[in-house]
């Protein structure tokens, strides 16, 4: 497991150009969102938490797809399966994707604060939401990248399957970020975080359990 994790991290590090590309893509979507919402500064400020998560979600479809490229290109997955369990392969990739998405979110956070004049009111809470929210995206995203990447329409199928599944994670992450940015008079933050953690618990375990059905067959 540690060796697998090391391999994944190394691959991500070697593909640094892709990391910079994903970051640029996320920043570009932020710009496009603002143009689509108009030049009303107060409206943009209110929409900032949603924009943050949409940027992460859209950029994640690009990076998730790449996470199985190294194996699918030369059929190395079959060899890997012989040495380690599908669940270990899945968790190594999902952890790497999670770390990467959390890092992407951390970079976007000051950008959002500057672009939309959103004060980073409760930085501890915003960090917690970023970590929990990107965990919620990473597990189903990694599993769906594994199937979409080996079908005839990878770019189409990944968002088609992954977007509807992460609806609850997106709702909870946006709500909790809103409360982190703009204050929490009704004390609802912990409720949304609990929902996010429940989502993570369900899908990290379920995706791990189903990974053998997806990585072993065919």
């Amino acid at each position: 497991m540690m060796a697998l994790l090391h391999k994944e991290m190394l691959l991500t590090w070697r593909g640094r150009a892709r990391v910079i590309g994903a970051l640029t893509f996320a920043a570009a979507t932020l710009l496009m969102f603002s143009f689509s919402a108009g030049a009303d500064g107060r409206l943009l400020q209110r929409l900032a938490p949603g924009f943050l998560w949409l940027a992460i979600l859209l950029a994640s479809t690009l990076t998730l797809q790449a996470s199985f490229d190294a194996e699918t290109e030369d059929g190395a997955l079959d060899g890997l399966i012989l040495h380690s369990s599908p669940a270990a392969i899945f968790y190594a990739k999902a952890l790497t994707n999670w770390l990467f998405l959390a890092a992407l979110g951390l970079v976007l956070l000051p950008l959002i604060a500057a672009l939309f004049d959103a004060s980073l009111g409760r930085l501890d809470r915003l960090f917690a939401v970023l970590i929990a929210g990107t965990a919620g995206l990473a597990a189903p995203g990694t599993l769906y990248a594994a199937l979409a990447g080996r079908s005839r329409a990878a770019g189409l199928l990944l968002p088609l399957l992954y977007f509807p599944l992460v609806v609850p994670a997106l709702i909870a992450a946006v709500k909790a970020s809103e409360l982190g940015f703009f204050g929490d008079p009704m004390d609802q933050w912990s409720g949304w975080i609990k929902l996010l953690l429940a989502f993570c618990l369900i899908f990290w375990s379920l995706c791990g359990a189903l990974s053998s059905a997806i990585l072993e067959d065919g």
């Binding site: 199937l147 399957l161 995706c207 189903l210 067959d217 065919g218």
Partner: peptide, 11 residues
């Protein structure tokens, strides 16, 4: 068969 079964369970 097995991939769509897995996705149906997740959905």
């Amino acid at each position: 068969a097995s991939w769509s079964a897995a996705t149906t369970i997740l959905a």
